[in-house]
Amino acid sequence: MNPFLVADCVGKAFAGRRVLSSATLRAVPGEVRAMLGRSGEGKSTLLRIAAGWLAPDTGLVRCGAESPLQLTAAALAQRGVFYVPDHGALSVALTVREQLAMLAERFPGGASPEDAATQMGVAHGLDERPPTLSGGEQRRADLAAVLVRAPRCLLADEPVRGIEPIDAEGLMRTFRVIARAGIAVVVTGHDVELLLDGSDHVTWVTSGTTYELGPPRIARGHEQFRAQYLGR
């Protein structure tokens, strides 16, 4: 299937330090894609560029059949891209209910805030602000926002970092359910086994570039990936 979102041949440097030289992200409808790589290799940078939050030095971001011009985060959001950074997608200043209601009003067609919160097991926290929820509940509230928004593409940066294993497994299951509904999902992280088990495709980010390793079964057997990243 054709990708919905492509960040192609992306290069990016910060203060003279080149993080990405020629990296590519493809978000394909119906697939959970895991981007793996060591810390500092540019996974988050590539995700931010794909979401329009950061301008690349070189390369471009294309969304659907749109012209290959650099699209802003707002333009990508309006086309159906939803970005969840590692600190979460919801504001710390408003209640979860208020924020889900804003998304529902702006983008009708997804789940209702109540249904989404119930589905994600955070109905009890609807009238709380995100910082008062536990880490796992905050991540589930982020996914409730995704269900309300019903995006065409979800980019999630380290969504299972620092939460209980049971919550992490639940999130990965939800990513798969979301993908099966035809949404393109890309997640990053360091919980290798969880991400390999829960994904359809593995992209290895290393040395400023990306390697499409394919399905997790193939990735696990990739000699260089094993030697340089998995370490076994």
């Binding site: 939050w53 802003t72 959001a77 939803f82 950074p85 997608a89 804003m102 983008f107």
Partner: peptide, 16 residues
């Protein structure tokens, strides 16, 4: 605070 609000506003499709 501003950072978290920017993400929400961005996902709402509100321009920079």
């Amino acid at each position: 605070q501003r950072l978290s609000e920017r993400v929400l506003l961005g996902n709402l499709g509100i321009a920079t």
